[in-house]
């Protein structure tokens, strides 16, 4: 009952977002080109780098490509589902626009997150899947339905983890006034660790990007699973991390709401 109601609201929000987009046809297609160009550039960059060597961190070419496909997929799903909603949060905290969300009988974080779904990113989701299929075909590996289900499940969990990180950083403006550099930091950290195979991190970096800012596992773990190199410990660890961060995110958001100052207009 609760779930169906939430889904219904997501559906309504998506429908309204679509109609709002239709009102600006140019932007509607524009977003696709913006996301598409970014996608292409990233793909180009990493395939160029990884093409320089035969293997990297124990991964061969097709596994590398599959890794690129995985982070593209997570990123594209993120943009499609919640990215634009989540990034609007600091602005809404600052302007006091959050008031209207707080007084609605729907979880305010949920409402904010799924209010600005971006249809323009949907083609990128398919493009990413295309890369994945191409990479998988080069892996010379028996692919069972179980591999696909497990992979999809891990991608989903990592998508949740990605969401958690995105929200946590955007909850900070509840407590401090100037937080733009924090977002900037996020952008840099993402370029940094989500796109480097986590297996390359050693020592303190491993601790940092596997536990503190777990961007390092997001694209790595599903890829490892698909390639059959993920240990059971690694599997359980990534699930636990996702659950722990989700619990923290909700608690942190709640705490943030308690500290909300609601700027008077």
């Amino acid at each position: 009952m609760r779930i169906t109601r939430q889904l219904k609201i997501i559906y309504m929000l998506l429908k309204m977002k679509l109609s709002r987009n239709m009102a600006f046809r140019f932007s509607f297609f524009g977003v696709f080109f913006v996301d598409g160009s970014l996608f292409l550039i990233q793909l180009l960059m990493f395939s160029t780098i990884y093409s320089q060597v035969g293997s990297i961190g124990g991964w061969d070419r097709s596994q590398m490509l599959f890794f690129i496909g995985t982070f593209s997929l997570i990123n594209a799903l993120n943009m499609f589902l919640y990215f634009f909603g989540v990034i609007s949060i600091p602005g809404k905290i600052k302007s006091g626009e959050l008031d209207l969300y707080i007084t609605k009988p729907v979880n305010s974080l949920f409402h904010l997150s799924f209010e600005s779904m971006d249809i323009g990113s949907l083609p990128l989701v398919f493009a990413s899947i295309g890369i994945l299929v191409y990479a998988a075909s080069g892996m010379h590996k028996q692919i069972t339905i179980l591999t696909i289900i497990g992979y999809a499940f891990l991608v989903f969990m990592m998508l949740v983890l990605y969401y958690d990180m995105e929200v946590i950083l955007r909850t900070i403006p509840f407590f401090v006034i100037q937080a733009s550099s924090i977002e900037r930091l996020e952008g840099e950290v993402i370029t940094l660790c989500m796109k480097i195979p986590g297996t390359l991190f050693k020592g303190a970096f491993k601790f940092l990007f596997y536990l503190v800012l777990p961007y390092g596992i997001m694209a790595t773990v599903p890829t490892q699973f698909f390639a059959g190199t993920l240990t059971l410990v690694g599997f359980v660890y990534s699930i636990l991390i996702a659950i722990a961060f989700t619990a923290f995110t909700f608690a942190f958001w709640k705490l943030g709401l308690k500290c909300y100052k609601s700027a008077s207009s």
Binding site: I49, Q52, V53, I56, G57, L192, I196, L200, F201, F205
Partner: peptide, 8 residues
């Protein structure tokens, strides 16, 4: 560059 190229 340090991490990535270091590995390569």
């Amino acid at each position: 560059a340090y991490v990535l190229w270091g590995a390569i």
